[in-house]
């Protein structure tokens, strides 16, 4: 259940000091004036077995980059990614070649757009079976068929329709196909990158419920990336808030939403319009624009827009510290600011 500490406290993935930097070429003919965009800079957090960590932040804050770095869809610049697997610790950041390919069965990705992520020329059965075939699962066609039917049923797909092509399915059904494909090889960890953002509200709720049920049934852990904070509130056990490539706050969902300690989290939450008439809509207006990650501000990266910024914030990088049990914040004044309880 949400808001409760997971009984299962085993770590699954430790991300330690992760940095993903992208070199950019300047405007000159030969790339004069090259720079570096620090898309993800010194990010550390832990994902436990069977839990959902929500990753929120504005566009460009590095949400997707963190997800892809853990999956090794791109190579981190620095830092460690330790994957705990049956008592062993695998350094995902150091995997390469066949070892990496073999390891991919443990981690999968569900994309945003179910219309763009299914091959129209493949039947649903072949789409779902593809990960198994790529991973060279032996056991033959019958075994694969059996596994496909099993996962399709779990994802509430009509097994009679497995011979059809994706075009015959609606958006919600397509996303269930994508989920079945991601889970068919029995991964321990799945990144859901805006996986419900493209769906209509009446359909979205069903997919959120399905993801939760699948987690209960299989014990898979999710890194749930979304810009929609209400969706994250429904599915995540813990939430990490990103700002310009850094995590500024991380805690259990309830604590982040009802007792935010970082002024950025507070501003972000206040900007979400809700239908509840009793909660006043009084968004905190942040001054200026999101800083360019190629030239992040000195000290606390949020100081250029923070309503509480002081001289210390400009000069000194705030420590990442545990202010309350399981509640981590990077702010000099965490706990001292008059951040109203949300909701």
């Amino acid at each position: 259940m949400l808001g409760q500490v997971l009984a299962d406290n085993r770590p699954l993935i430790d991300v330690d000091n992760l940095k993903v930097h992208f070199p950019v070429r300047g405007k000159g003919l030969f790339g004069v004036g090259t720079g570096v965009v620090k898309a993800v800079d010194e990010v550390s957090f832990r994902i436990r077995a069977g839990e959902t960590v929500g990753l929120v932040g504005e566009s460009g804050s590095g949400k997707t980059t963190i997800g892809r770095a853990i999956l090794r869809a791109l190579t981190p610049t620095a830092g460690e990614i330790r994957f705990h697997l049956d008592g062993d610790v695998v350094r995902v950041d150091q995997l390469r070649g066949r070892a990496l390919t073999r390891f991919r069965r443990h981690m999968q990705l569900i994309f945003q757009d179910p219309y763009a992520s299914l091959n129209p020329r493949m039947t649903v059965r072949d789409i779902i079976a593809e990960p198994l075939e790529c991973l060279g699962d032996t056991g033959g066609r019958a075994a694969i068929d059996e596994r496909v039917r099993e996962i399709a049923e779990l994802c509430r797909l009509n097994v009679e329709h497995l011979r059809r092509f994706p075009h015959a399915f609606s958006g919600g059904q397509r996303q269930r196909i994508c989920i079945a494909r991601a889970l068919v090889a029995g991964p321990k960890f799945v990144v859901c990158d805006e996986s419900v953002a493209a769906l209509d509200v009446s359909i979205q709720a069903g997919i959120i419920n399905l993801l939760k049920d699948l987690q209960d049934a299989t014990g898979v852990a999710y890194l749930f990336i979304a810009h929609d904070l209400s969706v994250v509130a429904q599915i995540a056990h813990r939430v990490a808030v990103l700002y310009v490539g850094q995590v500024v706050e991380m805690a259990e969902t309830r604590d982040v939403f009802f007792g935010p300690l970082h002024p950025y989290t507070h501003a972000l939450l206040s900007a979400v319009p809700t239908i509840e008439p009793e909660s006043a809509f009084a968004p905190v207006t942040l001054a200026g624009e999101i800083p360019n990650p190629a030239r992040p501000p000195s000290g606390c990266r949020f100081h250029t827009r923070c309503p509480y910024a002081e001289a210390r914030c400009r000069a000194e990088v705030p420590q990442w510290r545990e202010v309350a049990p399981e509640h981590f914040v990077a702010c000099h004044f965490a706990g001292e600011l008059p951040l109203a309880r949300h909701g």
Partner: peptide, 15 residues
């Protein structure tokens, strides 16, 4: 069906 930040424990009811 709308998820809400105010009610965390509720299971969503899809249409």
């Amino acid at each position: 069906a709308i998820p809400s930040m105010g009610k965390l424990e509720r299971r969503l009811t899809p249409v």
